[in-house]
Deep mutational scan, measured.
Amino acid sequence: GSMEQGFLPKGWEVRHAPNGRPFFIDHNTKTTTWEDPRLKIPA
């Protein structure tokens, strides 16, 4: 929902695949990933 959306880094969006699995869109680089960007520790 909109709650989890608010925690994503700037430029990211979460969508759900037809099977219900969430995936993440990085509008900054125009890419998608199954990995939650929030789980990655910034270098």
Rank of each mutant, 00 (worst) to 15 (best):
P22G: 04
I25G: 03
P18A: 11
E13Y: 06
H16G: 04
P18N: 08
A43D: 12
E13Q: 05
L8R: 03
K40H: 14
W12S: 02
I41S: 13
N28P: 03
T33Q: 08
D26I: 01
N19R: 00
H27K: 06
E4S: 14
T29Y: 04
L8Q: 00
N19H: 04
R38S: 04
D26K: 00
G11L: 01
M3K: 14
K10R: 11
P22W: 07
H27Y: 08
P22A: 09
H27C: 12
F24Y: 11
A43Q: 11
G11R: 01
G6R: 10
L8E: 00
M3P: 13
E4L: 14
D26V: 02
F7S: 15
P9M: 06
F7M: 14
E13S: 05
D26C: 09
E4W: 15
R38V: 03
T31V: 08
G1F: 12
V14W: 03
E13C: 06
F23E: 05
T32Y: 15
I25P: 03
R38C: 04
G11P: 02
R38P: 01
E4C: 15
G1W: 09
N19A: 01
F23M: 07
D36P: 07
K10F: 12
P9I: 05
N28C: 13
R21Y: 06
P37H: 01
A43L: 12
D36Q: 03
T29Q: 05
Q5S: 10
I25M: 06
F7G: 15
T32D: 02
Q5I: 14
I25A: 03
H16L: 15
R38M: 05
Q5T: 13
A17V: 05
T31C: 13
S2W: 13
P9L: 07
G6K: 10
T32G: 06
H16R: 15
V14I: 15
H16V: 15
P9K: 05
E4D: 12
F7H: 14
I41A: 13
G6V: 11
L39A: 11
F24R: 00
W34L: 05
A17Q: 06
E4K: 11
F7L: 14
P42V: 13
P9N: 05
F7N: 14
R15S: 06
F24T: 01
H16E: 07
F23I: 09
P9V: 05
P18M: 09
G20I: 00
P37K: 01
F23R: 01
M3F: 14
R21V: 09
F24P: 02
E4M: 14
N19W: 06
P9W: 07
I41P: 14
E35L: 15
P18D: 07
T29R: 06
D26A: 02
T31M: 08
P18V: 08
K30M: 09
H16A: 08
V14C: 15
T29H: 06
G20P: 03
K30L: 08
E13I: 04
I25N: 00
E13M: 02
P37W: 02
E13L: 03
K30E: 09
K40E: 09
N19Y: 04
F24H: 00
A43P: 12
T31H: 07
E4R: 11
A17S: 09
K10Q: 13
R15A: 07
F23V: 07
R38Y: 03
D26G: 00
V14F: 04
L8G: 03
N28Y: 07
T32Q: 10
F23H: 03
I41K: 10
L8T: 00
M3H: 10
A17M: 13
G20M: 03
W12C: 03
G1K: 09
R21K: 10
G6N: 10
S2K: 11
D26T: 01
P9D: 02
F7K: 15
V14R: 06
E13R: 02
W12E: 03
L39I: 12
A43T: 10
D36G: 01
W34V: 01
V14N: 00
P22Y: 08
E35N: 10
T33E: 03
P42N: 12
P18H: 08
Q5N: 13
R38A: 03
P42Q: 12
W12A: 00
T29S: 08
K30R: 09
D26S: 00
G11D: 00
A43Y: 13
F23A: 00
K40D: 09
I25V: 09
K10L: 10
G1M: 13
K40W: 14
G20R: 04
F23T: 04
K10W: 10
K10N: 09
E13F: 05
F23K: 04
K10Y: 11
L8H: 01
G20A: 00
T31I: 08
A43V: 12
G20D: 04
G20L: 03
T33W: 08
P18G: 08
P42Y: 11
G11Y: 03
E4Y: 12
P42E: 11
R15N: 04
T32N: 05
L39R: 07
R15K: 09
E35P: 02
P37M: 01
M3Y: 12
P18T: 08
E4A: 14
F23G: 01
P9Q: 04
A43F: 13
R15Y: 07
P22L: 13
N19F: 03
P42D: 10
D26H: 06
I41W: 13
T33N: 02
D26M: 01
N19M: 01
F7I: 14
T29I: 03
G11C: 07
F24W: 10
G20V: 01
R38N: 04
P37E: 02
F7Q: 15
M3W: 11
A43E: 11
E35C: 15
R15P: 01
L8Y: 04
K40M: 14
F24S: 00
W34Q: 03
T33F: 07
H16Y: 15
Q5E: 12
H27R: 04
H27A: 05
T33I: 05
R21S: 06
L8C: 09
L39K: 12
H16T: 14
E4P: 14
L39H: 10
E4T: 13
R38W: 05
T31K: 08
V14Q: 09
L39E: 09
I25D: 03
K40V: 11
